[in-house]
């Protein structure tokens, strides 16, 4: 018992581990809430589009000397609007619109970094990040953003539920669906911008999608998906970081793999939809 306690407490003697664990828990909760909307709207790849499309915003913000977060947020929201416009106003399907937008924004951003000589934009840290390098400032800012987004989701839950389940019905009933879409996209972009500078694109995308789809296999209501996803995201973050500490693994990928293990377990053992559960339930063919 003491050995287990020691095993659990040992990493916590380091301030950087405490902050990283706290960040992991906050991100797990925040990403599961916003990510649930991505999943039910069948837009899970928009997280990838937004997270790669913020690069031109970073470059321009550096060039103008304004907060890079603002530049990244504007570019991210613009990319999501581009996807929506291409899908609505042309014959393109949403996956094609996403691919075109992602590659164009990213390439344009890299060009801008070269043209505006804003080489301070560190692409590799953006893409891969390091949760162990989290500062108290990062943590405070992320907690504030998580509190804001979760409060807004709570306040507008019934409208967002209607819109994400039946957009046509919601629009016909008089709900401002474009406003709701922009609100959702802004929340998702804010989540990504606030966190990817700290933990990288890979971890943000995994945290947005993984815990939410795992919960999707387990529950039958959107709000349950958010609750269960939050718990799963937090557990995956903590277990990934402990694995990283004791096995000397890179922390971000360790968390992503922990998320995948959770998903695999749900896929096999979900009480209502699990592959193995369904197999055990299916009637055996009687021998002739």
């Amino acid at each position: 018992m003491t050995a287990l306690l020691e095993w659990l407490l040992d990493p916590l003697q380091f301030a950087f581990m405490r902050d990283a664990l706290a960040m992991g828990v906050v991100l797990g909760v925040l990403c599961a809430v916003t990510g649930s909307y991505l999943i039910v709207q069948q837009m899970s790849m928009i997280g990838g589009v937004i997270s790669h499309s913020i690069v031109p915003g970073l470059s321009i913000a550096f060039f103008l000397g304004i907060d890079v977060g603002i530049g990244a947020f504007v570019a991210g929201v613009l990319s999501a609007i581009c996807v929506a416009l291409l899908e609505k106003r042309s014959r393109l399907k949403v996956d094609a619109a996403m691919s075109l937008t992602l590659t164009t924004f990213l390439a344009f951003g890299i060009l801008l970094i070269s043209l505006l000589e804003t080489n301070q934009v560190d692409l590799s840290s953006l893409l891969f990040g390091d949760i162990l390098g989290v500062t108290r400032g990062d943590l405070g800012r992320t907690i504030a953003i998580a509190a804001l987004i979760i409060t807004l989701v709570k306040l507008f839950y019934k409208e967002l539920l209607f819109y994400s389940f039946d957009p046509l019905g919601a629009q016909a009933s008089g709900l401002p669906v474009q406003g709701l879409y922009m609100g959702l996209i802004s929340a998702i972009t804010l989540t990504i911008v606030a966190t990817m500078q700290v933990v990288g694109v890979l971890l943000v995308m995994a945290l947005l999608v993984g815990p939410a789809i795992t919960a999707y296999l387990l529950v039958k209501e959107l709000h349950q998906m958010m609750w269960v996803g939050s718990v799963l995201g937090a557990i995956a973050s903590i277990s990934g970081m402990y694995a990283s500490y004791y096995l000397d693994l890179p922390s971000g990928p360790a968390i992503v793999m922990a998320i995948f293990v959770g998903f695999l377990l749900a896929l096999c053992f979900s009480p209502r939809r699990g592959w193995l559960v369904a197999k055990a339930r299916s009637p055996h063919t009687p021998h002739q």
């Binding site: 539920l161 209607f162 389940f165 039946d166 046509l168 019905g169 919601a170 016909a172 209501e221």
Partner: peptide, 27 residues
Amino acid sequence: AYVPQRTVIDWDYPITVQNVVRMGRTR
């Protein structure tokens, strides 16, 4: 009150019958 075509709805959406009907009371 509008009932859209069945094909535009994602029937795998995580929502219960009761909550679908309550949507009619949103406005």
